[in-house]
Amino acid sequence: MKYPSETIENSINEISKLPGIGKKTALRLSLHILKKEKEYSKNLADSIINLKEKTRFCEECHVISDEELCRNCNNENINIQKNKICIVEDTPDVIAIQNTNQYNGLFHVLSGLISPINGVGPDNLNIDSLIRRLEKNKEIEEVIFALSPNLEGDTTTFYISKKLSALNLKITTIARGVPIGGEIEYADEVTLGRSIITRINYKG
């Protein structure tokens, strides 16, 4: 494609590097930014720069954070229950679980799952820091695994739970089952089969 201005061309090239954005969408976004007031583009650019410059990983739980310790780990939030810790693959999982409003315990981000095919072994994950954290933090009673229900997730859960066996903690995994509002006939057979096996007492 040919563009009348080099500045526009540069902007399109950069924006279209984002996942899911093609040249045409990038052009539309560039023109949209161009139409808005100057402050808009400055705020946008600043927020992007800050993403890289002002964030880091929490030293305790490895979630993306502004400070050394994230909002969950810095002891400022008194509502956090410190007797539970939830193990997740990555930061988006923390956000998703927090937004359910059903859990307000601690988190620990592994930054991946064990997958030899993708060259990821236990050494590449934040497992040692988890064990140190659990040894240090005697308040923690329960470890909840909230990893994807696939080969990689199950392998990771298995590996870490074996490593934790000496610590005498309650170990749980999130339930797998038919989605709420879903219809049984459309659920896949494996999920449905597991839901039948791990059925629960009806509480009225």
Binding site: P116, I117, G121, P122, D154, T155, Y159, K162
Partner: peptide, 25 residues
């Protein structure tokens, strides 16, 4: 699973250690 397991076996041999937890699942 076989492919994953074989890669772990190769790692055990190369790095000269065995951790059964990595393979038992």
């Amino acid at each position: 699973i076989i492919k994953s397991r074989n890669l772990v076996l190769q790692k055990f041999k190369k790095k000269k250690y065995v951790d059964r937890n990595e393979i038992e699942h």
